[in-house]
């Protein structure tokens, strides 16, 4: 993106340094530290309700951690307060490098599918309406919702909404794409198609992906970095081959779908 100062290429995309976050007396993240390199595809696994979505929200400054640093291309997002004008400007500059697929889509109800995907392009690029049209149609075709361009979000199925939200997240070719469960609610074929699109965007445009998933097949297919969050802690995190080889009990439980193991349903 043009208006941003280039960051030295050795600065990681994302660094979390001892990040903690509680709601009341409920500690959701408890001293999480991790580094996600540029151009990697990190898949975060973890049981429902452990704070995966909270982690993503901390990355874009929608939530402020109680403690710790959240470095995005070297800028500490956790230290920026959206309510202060000067901070907001810097926060917005960082956010422009993100595309985000929210867990429940968060499409704009009063805009058509087309306008939803065109929205970030119209705001943040100089593309002509013609160019936007081509790009939106292309993106929608790739996620298989080209036929629904003129529909409103309320007229789509859950899986379609998810795919439109993915198309919106990648609309302006962001540096980092955050995907909160992109494949939940999709059929296996569609979900594999989406995985391939992620791999292609990663290959051709060098986008960094941070993907939250419950889908272990997806993790095996796309991840070069794998992490697992449980009970507020990062139980394992690192290059996919290593993590798979070391086979942490919680991860194994996830992959084998066992009900007995370190992950407890209380």
């Amino acid at each position: 993106m043009a208006d941003l100062t280039p960051t030295p290429s050795d600065v990681p995309a994302v660094v979390l340094d001892n990040v903690s976050k509680s709601f009341g007396d409920h500690t959701v993240l408890d001293g999480v530290s991790l580094t996600i390199e540029r151009g990697s595809i990190a898949v975060m696994l973890g049981p429902s309700g452990t704070g995966k979505s909270v982690l993503l929200r901390c990355l874009v400054g929608l939530l402020q951690p109680d403690q710790g640093r959240v470095l995005v291309f070297g800028e500490d997002v956790a230290a920026l307060d959206e309510k202060r004008a000067a901070d907001r400007k810097r926060l917005f500059a960082v956010r422009r490098r993100f595309g985000m697929l929210f867990q429940d889509g968060a499409l704009f109800d009063d805009m058509t599918v087309f306008d939803n995907v065109a929205f970030p392009m119209r705001l943040h690029t100089d593309l002509s309406e013609q160019a936007i049209h081509e790009k939106v149609s292309d993106r929608l075709a790739r996620v298989g919702v080209a036929h629904a361009e003129q529909k409103f979000p309320s007229e789509l199925s859950g899986g379609m909404r998810k795919r439109v939200a993915f198309a919106r997240a990648i609309a302006i070719d962001p540096d980092i794409v955050l995907c909160d469960e992109p494949s939940s609610g999709l059929d296996p074929v569609m979900s594999a198609t989406l995985d391939e699109l992620i791999l292609e965007l990663h290959r051709t445009l060098g986008m960094t992906f941070i993907i939250i998933s419950h889908d272990t097949a997806e993790a095996r297919k796309v991840a070069d970095t794998i992490g697992m969050l449980a009970n507020g802690k990062l139980v394992t995190f690192g290059p996919a081959e290593r993590v798979f080889a070391e086979n942490h009990p919680a991860l194994e439980q996830f992959f084998t779908r066992a009900t007995v193991g370190p992950i407890k349903v209380v």
Binding site: R88, R95, M100
Partner: peptide, 21 residues
């Protein structure tokens, strides 16, 4: 009602993440 709905359905957050105040 419109703003409230956008807020509870996460669309206000989505705007903010797209660097729209």
């Amino acid at each position: 009602a419109r703003i409230g709905t956008m807020k509870v359905r996460g669309q206000i957050d989505a705007l903010a993440v797209m660097s729209v105040d």
